[in-house]
Design a protein around this nucleic acid. Structure first.
Lengths: 229, 229
DNA sequence: CGTTGCTTTGATGCCCGTCAATGATTGTGG
DNA sequence: CCACAATCATTGACGGGCATCAAAGCAACG
């Protein structure tokens, strides 16, 4: 009983929200080996270079995965939402730092038990391959954004991706700070602020407060993200 | 056209490529299901969005993995060297386009046979997880480069990474064009050229011709890559 | 209410992109 | 083998987009 995935996304830039969960068959097998872990806002869940002893699935809250340069420059690779797995790793050490953006509840899986389960159950291991494939797919879109998009395109793409995750509701919750957004987009906080203010001035979005943004003109915003100014 | 692939210890794959190969147990099992495929310089091996029916392991030559935006902007995600796998995919479609940078010989594995083998042999599937983990690890370092490094840091990091792959020999072979390098680094061709010329002027590298660069001062170059100007 | 941390806006400058021209190398046909 | 074209690489001039530096606004907290 293998559950089929539907990938009918026409646009290569956005992730279908459904794709972020584990295939159902593999997932149920995982329940047996996970334990609950809680982290306070701003806690470090694991650090870049740590032994990759545990992987996680996020139940509630938001997590950021980031890398730091020696002089303090920071790049956020991904924001993890409820339902997502993170820290899945088949090398010896974690490739990035995971930090709780809010208070967080997650399920923790030990690497060794995950390995053993994988050896016993091909469907579980295949599910893990699918999860990694998705992460890689996301990272590659992120590369295009950082390498080839303008500041405005990046900010709009980011908002549209959040909307996609949230199920395209008009009002978006923004759990991360402006600095976090800047570090995800490879910009400065000032550029992020100014770009958001521009979009507000053009009536493309509303910003009632720091943690909420409403998209008022999806069509125009999609054009901007694609580069049609 | 499809010849059986057999490998003895006399594979034409160099030692430095070892780090990027499949763990040995899993690798030998793969030999049974691969067939040889050849591609001419500039040929497209598969395209972004194609059904992910095949994965590959590169035997000789170089391949670039890239994504195109609708208006022609291009981002290269990775350069594939001999020994590397590429196009490993557990979603329905390929996430990027693979193009032959030179004439290329590769082993092609059908997705369905790879899947079947994976279900039968846990060690093979685990090897595939390791390969994907490495790709993800590489992509995340690439994100830092594109998001947070200056042009000079990017070019130097790129040269050092090439040196690493080549086993730290003094003289590097540069199989890709300046435009390819620019598209990998998220820069323009002019910036790449100017940066290389600067390094030459500072006696940090020699550039006898377009396809070769010699690193003259690894220590200083490493400092530059880290941001210590 | 004052403090603290985050956000927003303004002024200025520089890195890198754009546009343009020249040089170098490779490939092709006479 | 040379002439010519085509492609790629390099260098220069210039401008813009984004970073940097600085200050003011705003919300949460004791």
């Amino acid at each position: 009983m293998t559950l089929a995935f539907r990938t009918t996304s026409a646009t290569p830039i956005e992730a279908p929200a459904l794709l972020r969960t584990m295939p159902d068959d593999g997932f149920s097998a995982l329940q047996a080996i996970g334990t609950v872990a809680r982290f306070a806002r701003n806690a470090t869940i694991f650090s870049d270079g740590d032994d990759a002893d545990y992987s996680y699935r996020l139940i509630s809250g938001t997590v950021r995965l980031c890398k730091l340069m020696s002089d303090g420059r920071r790049q956020i690779a991904e924001f993890v939402a409820a339902g997502d797995f993170f820290g899945l790793e088949w090398l010896d050490t974690h490739a990035f730092t995971a930090e709780a953006l809010t208070d967080v509840v997650a399920i923790r899986y030990s690497r060794s038990r995950l390995d053993r389960l994988g050896q016993e159950r091909g469907d579980v291991q295949k599910g893990l391959l699918t999860l990694l494939s998705r992460d890689l797919w996301a990272a590659q879109n992120h590369l295009v954004m950082l390498g080839r998009q303008t500041a405005k395109e990046r900010v709009v793409s980011f908002l549209l991706a959040l909307a996609e995750r949230a199920g395209n509701s008009g009002m978006l919750d923004i759990p991360m700070s402006r600095q976090d957004i800047a570090d995800y987009l490879g910009l400065t906080i000032e550029t992020v602020c100014r770009t958001i203010s521009d979009l507000k001035r053009q009536r493309l979005i509303d910003v009632p407060n720091r943690t909420q943004i409403a998209l008022r003109n999806l069509e125009k915003l999609r054009d901007i993200a694609e580069g049609d100014l």
